[in-house]
Design a protein around this nucleic acid. Sequence first.
DNA 1: ATATGATCTGCAACACTGTTGCATGGTAAA
DNA 2: TTTACCATGCAACAGTGTTGCAGATCATAT
Lengths: 138, 138
Amino acid sequence: MEQFVADTLKDHNLRTTTCRTEVLGTFLNKEVALSHGDLEGALGDQFDRVTIYRTLKTFLEKGIIHKVLDDEGVRYALCKDRCTEHDHHHDHIHFKCTNCGQTNCLENVHIPAVQLPDGYRANELNLLIQGRCPECVA
Amino acid sequence: MEQFVADTLKDHNLRTTTCRTEVLGTFLNKEVALSHGDLEGALGDQFDRVTIYRTLKTFLEKGIIHKVLDDEGVRYALCKDRCTEHDHHHDHIHFKCTNCGQTNCLENVHIPAVQLPDGYRANELNLLIQGRCPECVA
DNA sequence: ATATGATCTGCAACACTGTTGCATGGTAAA
DNA sequence: TTTACCATGCAACAGTGTTGCAGATCATAT
Ligand SMILES: [Mn+2]
Ligand SMILES: [Mn+2]
Ligand SMILES: [Zn+2]
Ligand SMILES: [Zn+2]
């Protein structure tokens, strides 16, 4: 995994710094969408808040992570497809469990086509489904 | 319209105060999704920020408005269907124009059914489509 | 291995968002 | 008109996100 992190950073022409390595590693470990606050919590006092914000911004721009909309603040998740700077192409849904609070990408569940009224030009879709995840349904 | 505002408040067992009247009136006038900041701007210094926050929260709880997810902060829009406290039932999409910045409800465009993997229980859907609105396509 | 320049980081400061407690003022109903 | 209840304004606070700048760190070329 450490190798994957190093490669990913190199592939995107980013210097391998401790913060970037740790943040990317955290996304790989947790496998759920993370907020800035989640990262701060996971990484302790290792890094300044601002550095984490900037790391997220950089990863976003490079297409390493994508935003996950939420009714109580933005989260971020790894891009599985190869996205590039300002050209994210995601069509999977995001599921937020209202019980355990976890949000994740359901990469295999695609957003169905939507017929927009005349004149509208669609660019980016974002579908959040809230409910109960399998672990919390029981 | 003033009558409609008064009726709506009464229907939801809310006292008719100036702030509530003005906020509800603003939603009716503007016909787009509004953020707290938009309302502050539209209403000038008439009311304290906190009062506007509390008005939004009250309207949300009563089912007068619903949240509209956005990648840069939550907005709110009027509920057309009769929603009740904690029982919002919306299945229309929200469209945000990346050019003029306006977000609105496309009440007639419904969110298609989504087949979730086994074990997931869906409750609430939120689909935001970003792109260009008819006025900005030209 | 070292020097160099580009870039990343931490810190400080700031603006904006959202919440809470409390005293005061307004509303609706008797 | 009185009264009880509720909404408002103000103050204070925690959280979020941005920027400027000086110093540290990284990648590269010597
Ligand atoms: Mn995703
Ligand atoms: Mn809507
Ligand atoms: Zn769950
Ligand atoms: Zn537009």
